[in-house]
């Protein structure tokens, strides 16, 4: 990660990274969504320049690319935090205490679901069901599932994980 990542500074987007993606999906019908997915894998979000490039290369209108990118919950048009915490609010998790988890993180980090903390450290997302219902309530921090979470446990975990990384990098 570059130093400018956290403060939301506009580091230049390397559009050439998209070439292999265009090659792979060349000529395939209905390839817009997989291409957006691959683009997000590359850039971690969908920069405006990339949307424009995809529209040009697929020969479709930018309005269509934008319409699709904003329709699906998976796509992000803004840079995300260094750490991403997903709190599952699937039904099983919900009845087993997700709301308390969300409130706890909101209070502790002053961040609302869908937002990133001002220091760019943590993005909080509330998602509907990650399919780990038997481990309810479940959370996912940077891709790692943590089941049967309690607010205190989660906060402890976040304090350790999130602050430790930022200390290392400063």
């Amino acid at each position: 990660m570059t130093a400018s990542d956290g403060d939301g500074g506009a580091s230049a987007v390397d559009l050439s990274l998209m070439e292999p993606v265009f090659q792979k999906y060349s000529g395939q019908p209905g390839a817009l969504i997989p291409i957006l997915q691959k683009a997000q894998d590359i850039y971690n979000y969908l920069p405006a320049e990339v949307l424009q490039l995809i529209a040009e290369r697929l020969g479709i209108a930018l309005s269509k690319v934008y319409g699709v990118a904003t329709f699906y919950a998976q796509f992000y048009l803004e840079r995300r935090g260094k750490h991403v915490l997903k709190i599952c609010d699937g039904t099983a998790c919900h009845v087993k205490g997700t709301p308390a988890l969300i409130t706890a993180v909101e209070e502790e980090f002053n961040v609302r679901p869908g937002e990133t903390t001002l220091d760019g450290e943590l993005t909080l997302e509330v998602v509907y069901c990650i399919g780990s219902c038997a481990l309810a309530p479940a959370t996912v921090l940077d891709g790692r599932v943590m089941g049967r979470m309690r607010p205190t446990q989660l906060l402890q975990h976040l304090r350790r994980h999130v602050s430790k990384t930022s200390v290392q990098e400063t």
């Binding site: 609010d89 099983a92 069901c129 399919g131």
Partner: peptide, 10 residues
Amino acid sequence: EGDPGAFMDR
């Protein structure tokens, strides 16, 4: 399988 709380298909 979008139903929250369901994982049969998965």
